[in-house]
Amino acid sequence: MMTDATTDARVMPMLTLQDVHTEVDGYHILEGVSFSVPRHQVTMLLGRNGVGKTSTLRTIMGLWRANRGTIALNGENIESLNTMNIARKGLHYVPENMGIFASLTVGENLRIACRSQRLEGERLDWVLQLFPALHTFWHWPAGHLSGGQKQMLAIARAVIEPCDLLLVDEPSKGLAPAIIQNLIQAFEALKSEQTTILMVEQNLHMAQRLGDHLVVMEDGRTLHEGRMADFATDSKRQAEWLGLSMEASV
């Protein structure tokens, strides 16, 4: 299998989950999650509240340990590694609560995201172009930023170093529509850089605009995996799987 995969690395998915089960404090949260994240594409992980989308991201990142199943990054199993080593493999994670360091300044937050702690000029310029607000508030403690600015900082921090795979958990949550538009533009720019992204998103409008690939979850399992374009036109399935016509009007 490895030989097949290495013969054409572009065909091999960036990340593959195979029958992943996760238990947290005795509760069976993931009960067989299987899907793959194609290289250089944006994969949207959708589903109703509480079906295990965030748990899937946390399990990939090693913050929760998979009890069963395999998680492979570029064909190499990572499910038994700890979080630090998974991060060092090139997985960058933007959690739902953004996890910025509130007492550090915006600049320090970005600097600490590079393990060498040196900001590389060109890359920094590119990131600041994506999120101009960060330039304005460079010397502010990050805790003083608004919700939207914090989200931008969290994403900027995840992409300040080139990464293999970016995991993003509900970036649009609680943000004003105008800011969501900004975010969409930023992600489109990342997409054009061929960044591979796995994103949990409740905002269907955003999911449709950005997504290439689609995974739908239900009750801790994968319900469907396919092309976003097919799903986008299928309002029956949208209602059936996601239980709503969602914030499609945003």
Binding site: M84, G99, S103, R111
Partner: peptide
């Protein structure tokens, strides 16, 4: 840079670990 990581750890050690620092 070492001190900066310490401050980050104090605030959110899981996060620092998810960036790849050995806490």
């Amino acid at each position: 840079p070492f001190g900066r990581v310490l401050k980050a750890l104090r605030e959110n050690d899981f996060r620092a670990e998810a960036i790849g620092y050995n806490t």
